[in-house]
Amino acid sequence: MAGLSNIYVAEALHRAHILPTVLAGTLVTSKGKPRPALEDLAGAVRQVLADAIRAGGSTLRDFRNTEGGNGYFQHNFAVYDREGVLCATPLCSGTVERIVQSGRLTFFCLLCQEKP
C-alpha cells in the first residue's frame, strides 16, 4: 500500500480488530476473494486516513502544516504509542500491548484484535 506508515497501520488494524501478527494471505480465501476481515480492514484504512487528514495529520515531533501549526491526530490514537493504556474499543477490557516486528514497534490490543 502506498504511503501507509507504522502509525496508520496500527490504528487501522485496531479499528478492523485484526491482530498485527496474522499473515496477509489468511485474509484471502482459497479462491482469491477477500474475507470479511479484509473488507473491514479496507474500510478502516480509508477511515483512519480520512480522520487523520481532517485532523491535519499527526505531529509527533516537528511536523508543521503550511500555516506553521501542528497536526492533531495524535490525540486520537487508539493504540499507537499507548502501551499499557486501556483499550479504546467500547466494552473491551484489554490494555494496549507493544511488540517489535521487523525492527519496528507495533501496538495492539490482545483482547479485541483477533486472528480472522
Binding site: 500500500m1 488494524l13 494471505g25 484471502v28 477477500p34 521487523s102 507495533t106
Partner: peptide, 24 residues
C-alpha cells in the same frame, strides 16, 4: 481503486505479516 478485492489480489498467498504487507 483501493478496495478489498484489489487488496486481496495483492495479499493472496502471501506469508508475510499483515503489518509488513500494508507497509509495502
Amino acid at each position: 481503486d483501493f478496495n478489498s478485492v484489489q487488496i486481496a489480489s495483492k495479499f493472496a498467498g502471501k506469508k508475510t505479516l499483515i503489518k509488513s504487507a500494508l507497509l509495502h
